[in-house]
Design a protein around this nucleic acid. Structure first.
Lengths: 210, 210
DNA sequence: CCGCTAAGGTAGTAATCAATTACTATCCAA
DNA sequence: TTGGATAGTAATTGATTACTACCTTAGCGG
């Protein structure tokens, strides 16, 4: 339950990796803005000043943390999508892979919602904007592919459907975060995604799987 | 453009009202966690210590701010729903009323995402939880009413559809907040809501309005 | 076994913030 | 007119924060 003390003298690369790890870990538990460099150091069993040997500033830490998250998330989503039999199946696999990834890394939604992002225009903000626009483009592309294969309604507004898709994820996460005692992210996601499918399904294919 | 100085000597009730006003105003611009009691005082043209004559703590300020928001929001939503011709129409009116309300009060999503809420279990957290559960119950009720009138699919999971409804709002807000330069909340909402309608519409009524 | 380099420790600094205290100005009612 | 109540001021406090200058030591190559 407490911190693990007395690990010392790591190589610079390993120490940087561990700083990323404990930063995400602490952010998941106590919130992004409440993670101090002192907390990070204590979680690693070193003193606070040691943190600044490996990063020039706290902002720099959050930047590489977010890059780490982006790389992992993109990998997970890419692998999930690749397993899809068709564009719509890929969409579904990406959805649940995303939900699982967030459930495994509870810090991610808190970073997305932190004031670091929404406040001033920082490099962190720029990074998240890119991630989000790229994600949306990918979803829109999948939906258009599905449209070409007759898997979704032809008159579907793919951009709006992609917005709803991403909004669904973010909304589920936010609700699970606030109602964390009354709701489970994975369970709500499993019940909600079929509703989304109904929104895009063509008139003929009404029920997907009974 | 700057602050308005030199207003002084208000009655306690009026001063409390103004503290709520400037707090929401500042939160919309600089973020919830960056609003200091000094900022509030400066925006009102008084000294920082004066704030604490009217509230015992900063947390107490945020609590009454959130109560103020709840009362206004519930009023707006109630009035919007009352104008609906049927449950589904009421749902749509509530949706756009909610979007308009948030657009008029940009501080609200920032409060929902602030660490004040997600961090420790505070009275603020409790309040927001109640608001959210009550809201969801209202949506679920409307959907069930609509189901009884044959306006939505009979086999619809009303709870999941309500979750998607709220998630859609929160997701749209979050996206507009992050991509605030590339997206407009109202415009995205107008494009997205029809997709949601498709998800709940019965098989017969495919297109709502051409 | 020696010596250099890099990781970490020690001990700060300056800034910021919520909250408090002792005091003053202003208003209203008797 | 005066006296009590109240709104606001000025100054300060204690805690916390990111960040830094200087020193110590671990540990590897030769």
């Amino acid at each position: 339950m407490s911190d693990e003390p007395a690990r010392k003298r790591l190589g610079a690369d390993e120490r940087r990796e561990e700083i990323i790890r404990v930063t995400l870990d602490l952010a998941a538990r106590q919130g992004v803005d409440d993670v101090t460099t002192q907390d990070m150091a204590q979680a690693m069993g070193v003193t606070q000043g040691a943190v600044f040997r490996h990063f020039p500033s706290k902002d720099a830490i959050w930047l590489v943390v977010m890059q780490w998250v982006r790389d992992r998330l993109m990998g997970v989503l890419g692998r999930a999508a690749a397993q899809g039999r068709d564009p719509l199946d890929a969409l579904q696999r990406m959805f649940f892979a995303h939900i699982d990834f967030i459930a495994a890394h509870p810090a991610i939604p808190r970073v997305l919602m932190s004031e670091h992002l929404h406040g001033r225009s920082s490099a962190l903000r720029q990074l998240v904007t890119e991630i989000m626009l790229g994600y949306e483009a990918k979803i829109t592309g999948l939906l258009n592919d599905a449209k070409a294969q007759g898997l979704v309604r032809t008159e579907l507004d793919a951009h709006a459907a992609a917005t709803l898709y991403i909004g669904m994820i973010q909304g589920l996460v936010l609700q699970a975060s606030i109602l964390r005692d009354q709701r489970t992210l994975a369970a709500e996601a499993a019940r909600t995604f079929p509703i989304y499918l109904q929104a895009v399904h063509p008139p003929s294919t009404q029920g997907a799987t009974p």
